[in-house]
Write a protein that binds this DNA or RNA. Structure first.
Lengths: 123, 123
DNA sequence: CTTTCGCGCAACTCTTTGGTTGCACTATAC
DNA sequence: GTATAGTGCAACCAAAGAGTTGCGCGAAAG
């Protein structure tokens, strides 16, 4: 995790952590590690580790309330990561002259597309 | 890397791979692993591995040209990841906007709806 | 005061991953 | 033909990461 961008991307790369992040964002008052672990398949310590990762990357912050520690989501701090992606995607599509943008969105890419030349299918 | 989203996030989490992705996106005709490795600190095989990761996650595609393999960037396929982030950030900011409708958000489904008892009934 | 609950820390395992080197194959160049 | 440049594959290594269990400590609850 060298820079902040890598931290955010790495934090969101784990499905469990994303699910935890969602659960956190659904609670305006935040949640504790014990709360989030109660009912899930992972242990409380694992949840606590995930929450610490989120806090370290700025995607959550802590607030002490008595003897428990509430984690609050900070989804806005993930926006630079989304912006990074959008910049590239936008730049690329602009370079293609926005003509392939329409027919180039089958959702996923064809894994084995060797030998094929499918560029510039203009009109 | 269970789902596609995790794949994209994990792929972009590495700074070397992001830099490679940028270098790829800067070349409209793509580039080969040997080309990208020439001048960089990492070996050709390491670059090839990174490119394969990008290809597996849909962020790049390959095109055979004689005996060399050119990789072409596909930044548009990273958009779902950016959209995932933006959805959360937007939802959060919107919720901060209308504090009165905090308690009833019928459109929002709660991922972890275990036996939660809401404490701290702040008046 | 004693018990209980929540939290943090530490150790450990297993898997993934970013990186290397070496070798074999294949298509171009001479 | 031989030489050479570009890939792919495999083995290997070190570090990180996701998960677990166990234990100790401090704050509420009884």
């Amino acid at each position: 995790m060298s820079d902040a961008l890598s931290g955010v991307f790495a934090a969101l790369a784990d499905p469990t952590r994303r699910r935890l992040f969602d659960a956190l964002a659904a609670r305006p008052d935040g949640a504790t590690a014990t709360e989030l672990a109660r009912g899930g398949p992972v242990s409380r310590q694992a949840v606590a580790k995930h929450l610490q990762v989120l806090r370290r990357t700025g995607l959550a912050e802590t607030r002490r309330d008595g003897r428990e520690v509430r984690y609050l989501a900070r989804p806005s701090n993930a926006r630079p990561a989304a912006a990074w992606i959008d910049e590239r995607a936008l730049a690329w599509e602009r370079r293609l002259g926005r003509l392939s943008t329409l027919l180039d969105s089958p959702g996923m890419v064809d894994p084995v597309r060797h030998g094929e030349n499918e560029r510039a299918p203009r009109d």
